[in-house]
Every structure is written in structure tokens, then in C-alpha cells.
Write a protein that binds this DNA or RNA. Structure first.
Lengths: 204, 204
DNA sequence: GCCCGCCCCTGACATTTGTCATGCCGGGCG
DNA sequence: CGCCCGGCATGACAAATGTCAGGGGCGGGC
């Protein structure tokens, strides 16, 4: 007997979610038991329906896919998580795996392939897109120290150093130093470029 | 007799494009005659198949939806363009309409609704998502002068003023001035925040 | 024709940011 | 234990950035 897999689908784009639900419904052994458009909603739906596999978009309003996965791991250990994403940032993959995610693929895969992957993770196996994995490996670990990353995050919206210093409870000179060392580690000309790079690599 | 509508589908995310194609195929009067994953590919497909309606993603590799629409308008005036987008930036809507686009909607619409809209634009009518329209109106026109926008663009990747000055063939002081006035017009603290805001509003 | 306002452009000055030399502390290692 | 290394923190100085006052050109209103 082929067991049927109960799936939760979470993506903020209704068009895509609906289309996906329709396509997955064509597979005999898959059934979409719940849909959600936001992070918190996904969590609530998961609690209510206890799906076998949760297919989560990485970027959703409220809480991103990784955050949802973390909560899910604690509350429903039996629920496997598969993350799909449009723009694969290396660091996200690492964070996702740390959160216990079982699968991680870009949205460029076909629906057919996605269905296979749902079965794969349901069977207890893992799968990450080879290209994303290669990116993550070549990007490597974050070279930033805890404080450097913290200061970079505060600098993300272009705030002046004085403001960052206040929020981080540091002297201005110190903040400038962290910014500077972070920028040089990232090979950036200035802190703004550094912020962009760190974001791209998923290190902030 | 209900005429059948020949549709071109362009989106870089295979998962979504495939799912969409499948759903639209369920509608009796719609037929997807071509698919594309990039801007140039969409253009080539349009030339080859001369579709009635082109459904374009706003953000694609190569050339964005608006650029494709512009070319299409010149080469295939009979082909109506409907743009779908994940992240609606006000300025894009304006540019799109200027490029002769007939419909503009976020990806949060349902597939059912999208099918209706394809018929709507095919019938010669226009449709823009009310919420996006409201955003565009409230965001209003760009308050930036030509030079201000130009300098902001050059500043986008965090380049130092000297470099911007060279690329724009201006004195450094002048560049600082434009940056400064642009920032104040946008209500930004500094040029980096200004760049972000201008991007969000679609003014650069 | 003349004035006014806006855009374009510039250099000088004040402020902010980036860089450097330095000190403190805790953890690993010979 | 004593040493060295790396992360954390700071202030002083040099360089980049933001702000200001001002001048030339062009078009619309009177």
C-alpha cells in the first residue's frame, strides 16, 4: 500500500500557491491539507492539521521559512520541512539546515520534481539543490564575529554611526571599527557595500 | 463562438510557469502557445508565435517585463501585454503603462482571476490592481530631477563620490549636492537610505 | 522686455566616517 | 605558569561626505 502524504503549503503569492496545490493534487499519493500565506498562519495551520510535510516559501510576511521551521521542529517533530525559494542566498541554506529543514530547492524546479522531493523528505531522506549547495560551500562560513554582524545589521538601513552606537550600546569609535573590519573581511569598499554583500551571502 | 486566446507565458521560475501553464490549460478558451524564462527569450518566442496576450513576470534575467513590453509594442502591436509581479513598486506601474502594458497585477491574485484578466485585456480593456494603483497615486511622480536620478543610480552600489563624479563627468561638490538634495526630497537621512527609498518607489 | 523660479553647476566649510595604534580580557598551548 | 592569539573596546587623526551660499542659463508669466 502506498501511504498518502499530507502536505501543508505556505507561500504568500496566492497565484503560485493555488497553482501548486492544483498540480500536487494530480499526484495520487499527495494531498494538500492546508494552505497559508504568512509565517504565523503557516504555524497555526500546521498545529491544526499536523501535516506530514510542510512546503514553505523562504520569504513570507510575518516570519520567514526558517523561523517557521524552527518552531515546527519543536512543536511537531514528525513534520518534515521542505523549503522553496526564489533567490537562493548561501547563508540561508546553512541556517535552514541548522533549523532541521530536510529539503531546500529553488523555485526553478519543475512541479514534477517537487512532488518527487516531497516523497523523498517524507521518506526521511534529505535533499538540497546541488547548485545552491555549491554556492553555500564556496561562500563558506561567515568570517564575521558576533559583534561585527550585530553592528552590520544595525547599519543595514543606512543609519548614521551615532544611532548604531546607541542601539548597540557601544562607543562610536568602536562601531566604526567593527564596520571597518567587517568591510575589509568582505572585501567591500565601505560599510554600505559590506551590508549588501553580507545580505547576499545570507550572513546577516 | 468563443474565440480561443493564444497566450505567451514568461517567468523565470520554472515551478510557477509550469504550474500556471497547467492551470490556464484548464480554461477552454485559453491556450498557452509558448513559454520563456528570460526577457530575450520571451521576445524571441513572441516573434515566433505571435500570441494574442503575453503574460510577463516583471523581474526576469536579461530584460525586465517593461523592456520586453516596449519592444513588443513596436514589433507586435496586436499583442496585448499583462504584467504580473511579486513585489509591486509604484514607479514600475507607471513605466509599464507608459510602455503600453494593458494589465498589471500582483502574484497574489488567484489563477481563476488571472484567466479572467487575460480575457479582459484580450478584449481590449485595461486592468490594474486597485491596491497597486493606489500606491502609485499616493507615491506620486518622482520629485527628482534628471541629474539627481542619474547621480543616485551611480551611487546605488555604494561607490564613493569621486567615482560617481567621474562617471557622471561632474565636480565632486556637484555630485554631493545632487545626492544631498535627492536625499532631502526623499526624506532620507543620507544617500544610502535615499537609494533604498528611490528603489522601493521605482524611481531609479 | 523683464522678472521670477527652477535647474544646473561650483568651491569652501562643518560634520561624519574610515583607519590606526593601543589596551584589556579570556582561552588554548607549550 | 607564562605566553600568545583573537575578540572586544576606545580615542585620535586623516579622509570622505553632507551642507551652505552663490552664480549662470533658460523658460513661463506679466
Amino acid at each position: 500500500m502506498t501511504t498518502t502524504v499530507r502536505v501543508l503549503l505556505a507561500d504568500d503569492e496566492h497565484l503560485i500557491r493555488g497553482a501548486l496545490a492544483a498540480l500536487l493534487a494530480l499526484e495520487d499519493d499527495l494531498v494538500v491539507v492546508a494552505e497559508a500565506a504568512t509565517g504565523p498562519e503557516a504555524l497555526a495551520m500546521a498545529r491544526a492539521h499536523a501535516p506530514d510535510v510542510a512546503v514553505l516559501d523562504l520569504q513570507m510576511p510575518g516570519a520567514d521559512g526558517v523561523k517557521v521551521a524552527t518552531s515546527l521542529r519543536a512543536e511537531l517533530p514528525g513534520c518534515k520541512v521542505l523549503i522553496v525559494t526564489s533567490h537562493g542566498r548561501p547563508g540561508h541554506l546553512k541556517r535552514a539546515l541548522a533549523a532541521g529543514v530536510r529539503g531546500f530547492v529553488p523555485k526553478t524546479v519543475s512541479a514534477q520534481r517537487l512532488a518527487e522531493l516531497i516523497r523523498t523528505v517524507h521518506a526521511g531522506n534529505r535533499y538540497v539543490d546541488p547548485e545552491l549547495a555549491a554556492d553555500a560551500i564556496s561562500a563558506g562560513d561567515s568570517p564575521l564575529t558576533v559583534r561585527e554582524a550585530e553592528v552590520l545589521e544595525h547599519a543595514a538601513d543606512g543609519a548614521p554611526v551615532a544611532e548604531i552606537a546607541e542601539r548597540a550600546a557601544l562607543a562610536e569609535g568602536t562601531v566604526r571599527n567593527y564596520l571597518s573590519s567587517a568591510a575589509s573581511k568582505l572585501g567591500a569598499e565601505n560599510r554600505h557595500a559590506a551590508v549588501r554583500l553580507a545580505r547576499e551571502r545570507g550572513w546577516v
